[in-house]
């Protein structure tokens, strides 16, 4: 028997006046899963996240988090999740450590955990600097440290690696993997397709408030694969060959035998292209 889902969304509809931001969304997110929520601007990702963090009441439908109703049993859900917003929100006049101390007090977390979290995001050396002196990346990492302070069962991340350098992004990914290993469930929204392919177990793609795709990144790859080879010949001419067509495959073999291929690049699947194909919109 499968364990109950961490998050169960059934027929979720959220309306802003006459505008329908989320339309009849059904979604189940399993425990211990890293789930990616994708979509162009205005797709309904942020609204869905707002419902999940209790900042917006559903117009219709039900949302259960860890078996508790998000409206009626909000107080039971609150201590169990962490949230990394897209816009940083720290007490700028305090140090990084002081910021975490305040939230550690609210979550009733021991002081030793503060140092642990600071070390995890590699901010232990800058812990006693005022946050207003932090770089954008440091602020983002401090947000993550704050969100994981109380070892949440569910972690929501809104573009966690935006403005982070490659190394800092890898730190974030490492932390997320560790949390998954500890049994946490992670939901992230991102526009970084490479990140989605690398770390997400499953992905939901929203467009205009509706769910248009839900699967693993690999399955989406297979469903929307696109086998093409881009060649640059010795004389400088460029060729694009469709590997699903026999004539193109034979032509490729001929060119390779003749030794006239200077460069070849295959692109079996591009998540970005798949996303654009699915949403039918420019990716932002």
């Amino acid at each position: 028997m499968l364990p109950p889902p961490a998050i169960c969304i059934q027929g979720l509809t959220v309306e802003y006046g006459k505008f329908i931001a989320v339309d009849q969304l059904d979604l189940e997110i399993r425990r211990g899963e890293l789930f990616g929520l994708l979509g162009p601007n205005g797709a309904g990702k942020s609204t869905t996240l707002k419902v999940l963090i209790g900042q917006r009441r559903p117009t219709n439908g039900s949302v259960k988090i860890l078996g508790h109703d998000v409206v009626r049993e909000w107080s039971l859900i609150k201590p169990k999740f962490g949230y990394v917003p897209d816009k940083e929100n720290h007490f700028d006049e305090f140090t990084g450590r002081r910021n975490l101390q305040i939230f550690a007090g609210l979550y009733d977390v021991p002081r030793t955990r503060i140092h642990e979290c600071l070390k995890m995001v590699e901010l232990d050396e800058a812990a006693d600097l005022q946050v207003k002196r932090y770089s954008l990346g440091m602020r983002k990492k401090l947000l993550l440290a704050r969100a994981i302070l109380h070892r949440p069962e569910i972690l929501y991340l809104d573009e966690p690696t935006a403005n982070l350098d490659v190394y800092s992004a890898s730190i974030v990914h490492r932390i997320l993997r560790n949390m998954l290993a500890d049994g946490s469930t992670i939901i992230l929204t991102t526009h970084n397709m490479k990140e989605v392919q690398e770390i997400c177990h499953r992905v939901a793609i929203l467009c205009k408030g509706c769910l248009i795709a839900l699967d693993t990144p690999l399955a989406l790859r297979q469903q929307h694969h696109h086998r093409t080879a881009d060649l640059i010949c010795g004389d400088g001419s460029k060729l694009q060959l469709n590997l699903d067509r026999e004539t193109d495959r034979n032509r490729l073999v001929e060119l390779l035998h003749a030794g006239s291929v200077a460069s070849m690049h295959t692109r079996e699947f591009d998540f970005h292209d798949a996303f654009l194909k699915l949403t039918g919109q420019a990716f932002d």
């Binding site: 609150k78 917003p85 816009k87 929100n89 720290h90 009733d108």
Partner: peptide, 14 residues
């Protein structure tokens, strides 16, 4: 304005 109130509201503090 800078979102810290939201951060507090999302913590166990009612």
């Amino acid at each position: 304005e800078n979102g810290v109130l939201l951060a507090q509201a999302l913590s166990p503090a009612t």
